[in-house]
Structures are given as C-alpha cells and as structure tokens.
C-alpha cells in the first residue's frame, strides 16, 4: 500500500472515531449513516458482486432485531410475560444485564441470520434473475406479516427493548461506535474478501453463471456462504438497531420492505454496483440527501423516494463508480484490444 493511500485511510479512520465529538448534534444520524453503509455493502455482496439482486435482505435486518431482542430478554425474564401487552409489572435491566444482553443478543442475531440464510439459500438460489428478486421480496413481506400474528413476539405491537439506565449522550455514543466498528470491520473484510479466489468466483457467477458451473466452480456453495456472511452483518446491524430504537414493531420498523429494504438498493445503485467504495459513497450521498431534504418535502418525501428510484434506475444505473469507469477506464486498469490489432488478427 502506498504512503498516500495509507494516509488517506488513516485520516478516514480518525474522522470516524472523532465524528461524534465533532458533530455532537448529529450522533444519531451518523449512527444511521453507518447502518446504511453496512446494509449497502452487504447488499452489494450478492447484488453487485454476485449478480443476485435481492429485494428481501431486509428479512435479515428484521430477523436480527427479533432475535437480538428475544435473546436479551430471555436471558433474564420469561419472554411471554415480558411481551404481554397487559402486563403491569416492570422489568429493570442493570447496566451489566443490558450490555451482556447486547453482546450476546447481537452475536446470536448475526449467527441466526447467517444460519437461516444458509438454510433457505438452496431454495432461493435455484431462482434466477427476476425470480430471485421477487422470491426474496416475498420472503420479507411474508415474514413481517407472520411475525405480526405471533403474540409471544408482541404481535403487531412489536417489542419494547430494555432501556439503558445511564446518560443518554453516552448511550448515543455507544450505538454510534458499535455501528462504526461493525462498518469498519466489514469494509476491511470485504477489501480482502473480494481479492480472494472466493471473491473472483462470485464475480464469475455474476458474469456468466452457466460458464462458472461448466468450469466446476461450486456455485451453490459460494452463493450460500456469501449470502450467509452478508446476513451475518445485516442481522447484527438489525439487533443493534433494536437497541437504538428502543421500541420496534414488525411491519414499519423490522421488516420495513419499502423503507430501508429499498434504500440499500438505491445506495448501491447510486454509488456503483460491484465496487467496494461505491456502496459506501452511495450510502453517504443518499443519507445526506435524505436527511437534508426529508423535512422540506412536506409529506411528499416518499413520493420523492419512488421518483428517485425510477430516475436512478432509468438514467444513472451504473452509479458514480460506473460513470467514472466509463470515463476513465485506465484508472480501473481496463485495457482493450485496438481496432487495428483486431482487424489484423
């Protein structure tokens, strides 16, 4: 790695660490920005790098929320009593209980989501192209509808998480740093992962799966493991979100299909599919745009979001990185045979 690059990464890391102190009023938004970066990067693992465009990765986010909550609660209290809507007693968590629950719940959520991705993957990865997108969308919608009918999980009311007993400012910083750490780990992991034989293999699946199969690449195995890794991070992010939001319910928060579920796709398209930094840049652009404009749109923000999706998909589908790659192919090490050489061959 060159010195300049090293310096750049160092500066970025420093900014990440210092951000909540530099912009104390925006700590929650910054934490959400890291959440967006995480879901965008994990979406790109299957969507951009492997060519499987999921519309249902939010399934793992919602499932992560529920698993994180259930683990945290059941560590100390009976779940049915905790989620009973008519309960009168209160359940108090000491800081020690709270953090034990957060660590175990979040790890458990990640593992559960990774395992469930691995388990349901063989069914979904038999579906190609639009069928995969629709199938995964169906998964997310069905999960939300089913969970909202399960009383022990709070039904349509959702679950109220234990509340951190200490200073609220400290709580916001904790959430920020957990998300940021997760995001940094993910970026470092992916920058290595995409260089491995594994990373090359999933690119091969994206570009021509039939050829990859004919070459004896374990396509299903690679697809499953990639989805499971992606689900692991999304699940953990979901669990942390549950702690951040304190209260969540199934349809609008956990399995929020048209909210975060589609934001992650928009972020990736905006920044550029199939690149490491595209999703990160896309997430930053989209999040800033959203936070700045949201309140001025006077209720029309969701219409604007739909319109934004249409505009990006129709006019700017390759994203920022794709546009750069097109304009400056040499920056990406792309070299093509000249016309003269081709003609003589």
């Amino acid at each position: 790695m060159s010195m300049r690059k090293l310096a750049l990464y160092g500066a970025l890391l420093l900014l990440t660490v210092a951000a909540p102190f530099l912009f104390p009023a925006y700590q929650t938004q910054l934490a959400t920005l890291w959440l967006m970066i995480i879901v965008a990067l994990t979406w790109d693992m299957t969507g951009g790098q492997m060519g499987y465009n999921s519309l249902g990765n939010i399934f793992f986010y919602g499932t992560g929320m529920y698993v994180g909550a259930v683990i945290t609660i059941t560590l100390y209290f009976p779940l049915a009593e905790y989620t009973d809507a008519s309960r009168s007693e209160t359940f108090t968590f000491t800081p020690e209980m709270y953090f034990t629950g957060m660590v175990l719940g979040t790890l458990g959520a990640g593992l559960f989501c990774a395992l469930s991705a691995y388990a349901i993957g063989p069914l979904f990865f038999g579906l190609r192209g639009p069928y995969f997108a629709i199938g995964t969308l169906g998964l997310a919608i069905a999960a939300g509808e089913i969970v909202s009918n399960i009383d022990i999980l709070g039904g349509g009311q959702g679950i109220s998480m234990p509340v951190y007993g200490g200073d609220f400012e400290v709580f916001k910083k904790i959430i920020y740093y957990v998300f940021a750490a997760m995001g940094v780990v993910l970026i470092v992991f992916l920058s290595w992962f995409y260089q491995t034989r594994f990373g090359k293999a999933i690119n091969a699946i994206r570009d021509d799966e039939e050829k990859a199969e004919a070459m004896g690449i374990h396509t299903l195995r690679y697809k499953l493991v990639t989805w499971a890794i992606s689900a692991f991070f999304v699940g953990m992010a979901g669990s942390i979100s549950a702690f951040q939001l304190i209260h969540f319910e199934p349809l609008e928060t956990a399995y929020q299909t048209i909210n975060l579920g589609i934001f992650m796709v928009v972020c990736v398209l905006l920044g550029g599919k199939g690149t490491l930094w595209g999703p990160v840049i896309g997430a930053i652009l989209f999040h800033v745009f959203k936070e700045v404009t949201w309140n001025y749109l006077l209720g029309w923000q969701w219409v604007a979001l739909g319109a934004l999706i249409v505009v990006i998909v129709v006019f700017f589908q390759d994203g920022l990185m794709g546009w750069l790659r097109h304009r400056k192919p040499e920056w990406f090490g792309i070299r093509v045979e000249s016309r003269e050489a081709r003609a003589s061959a």
Partner: peptide
C-alpha cells in the same frame, strides 16, 4: 464463453480447479 469484462489473466485465474479446493482454501 469467456468473461468479457475481465482481462485474460483474470479469466485464467477464475479457471483454477475449484473442485480440488476446500472452502477454506477458497478464502
């Protein structure tokens, strides 16, 4: 059928015998 967007060396590196590899070796 080749991988048109990749260069020749990348095409070759994708073609290593994955069947002789364990999952760990792929990483």
């Amino acid at each position: 059928r080749i991988y048109g967007k990749m260069n020749c060396v990348e095409n070759m590196l994708i073609s290593i015998p994955h069947r002789k590899m364990t999952l760990l070796e792929a990483f």
